[in-house]
Simulated scan of single mutants.
Amino acid sequence: METAPIAGLGPLSKRERLREMVADALRAAVISGEMRPGAVYSAPTLSAMFGISATPVREAMLDLVREGMVEALPNKGYRVRVVPETELDEVTHVRLLLEPPTVRDVVPLVPAADFPRLRELAEAIVSAVRERDLVGYIHADRVFHLALLGYAGNSQLVTIVSELRSRTRLLGLTPLLESGRLESSAREHHELLDLVERRDADGARELMVRHIGHVRGKWARGTPVDGAPESGAS
C-alpha cells in the first residue's frame, strides 16, 4: 500500500486525532482492496508509509481488529481478514431474520416530523458515493439503517445488527464504485424512505430483503441469497 505521509497533523498532543486519521486511512485501504485480503502488514512497515511512529498505527490497527476487518498475528503484524463463505451465509441468514421484519414493524412508528432528518441521512449516502468516499459511504449507510431500526425501541437488536453489518461489507466496493452501480444502489435508500412515508410496511420489508441479498451477492463477491436480485445496496 502506497500511502503518502500525513502532513499538518500538529504536535503529539493530538494523539487521538492522529489515531482516528490513520484508522480511517486503513479502513479505506481495506474496503477498497488496496490492502489485500489474507496479506500480512507490520506496524513498522505501515508507519513508514504514513511517515509517523509505529504507536498510533498499532492503536489504529487495534480499532480495525475490534471491527473485524483485520486479525492480529503475534510477532508478525496484522492480516486483512478473509470472511469465509459459510460465515457470510450464516450472517446473511440472521440479518434476514432480524432486519426486514423490524423495518416492517417500525414503518407506522416513524413520526412524519422525522422524515426530513432521515432524508438527510439517505442523501449523505448518495453524496459519499459521488465524492468517491468509501469510508464515508460505509459510515453514512450504517447511520441511516441503524437510525431506522432504532424506532423499534430495542437497543439490543440495534447493537446486534450493527455488529453483523460490519462483518459483511469488507470487499467489492471499488468495482461497484467504478461501474456506477454503487450510486444507483445508494439512491435506493430514498426509495426505502418513499415506502416508509407511504406507510407501505410490506413494501419496506421486501426492499430490505433485497438490500441484504445485495450484500451477500456483489459486496461479498458471492452469490445472492435465494429470491434476492443482485445490486450493490446495503
Rank of each mutant, 00 (worst) to 15 (best):
T174L: 12
S162M: 03
G180I: 07
L164E: 05
L170N: 09
H190G: 08
L195W: 01
L177I: 09
D200M: 05
E183G: 11
D194M: 11
S179G: 04
A186S: 11
T174D: 05
S166W: 10
L195Q: 06
E183F: 02
S179Y: 00
S162A: 14
G180S: 11
L171S: 15
T168A: 10
E178L: 12
R199Q: 13
V196R: 06
V196I: 15
E191M: 12
E188C: 06
R181Q: 11
P175M: 08
R169S: 14
E188G: 09
R169G: 15
G180A: 04
L195H: 04
S166Y: 08
R198V: 13
G180H: 07
E183R: 07
D194F: 04
S185R: 11
L177W: 01
L195F: 03
L192F: 00
R198K: 15
E197R: 13
L192Q: 09
P175F: 02
L173T: 06
R199F: 02
G172R: 05
L182Y: 01
L195R: 13
P175E: 06
P175S: 07
G172L: 05
V161M: 13
G172M: 07
S179V: 01
G180W: 01
R181C: 01
D200P: 10
H189P: 10
L182W: 01
V196D: 06
H189T: 14
V196M: 13
V161L: 07
S185K: 07
R199N: 09
G172P: 11
R198P: 14
D194Y: 04
T168S: 03
R167F: 00
L171H: 10
S179T: 05
S185Q: 11
R199C: 05
L193W: 02
L173S: 06
S179Q: 03
R169F: 00
P175C: 07
S166V: 13
R165I: 08
R198E: 15
S179P: 02
S185A: 15
R167K: 12
D200V: 08
S184K: 09
E163F: 09
R165H: 12
P175I: 06
L170S: 12
E197N: 05
S184G: 10
R167Q: 14
E163G: 15
V196F: 05
G172K: 07
L171M: 14
L177V: 04
R167T: 08
R165E: 08
S184F: 00
E197M: 12
T174N: 03
L164M: 10
L170V: 07
S184H: 00
L193I: 06
R199P: 12
L173K: 06
E163A: 15
R199V: 08
L195A: 10
S162Q: 10
R181A: 10
V161T: 12
R198W: 05
G180V: 07
S179N: 01
E183P: 07
G172Y: 00
E197A: 12
S179D: 03
L193K: 05
H190T: 13
L192K: 08
L182Q: 08
L164A: 06
R169Q: 14
L164Y: 04
R165F: 04
E183C: 02
S184I: 00
S179M: 04
L170A: 11
S166T: 15
S179W: 00
S184R: 08
L171K: 15
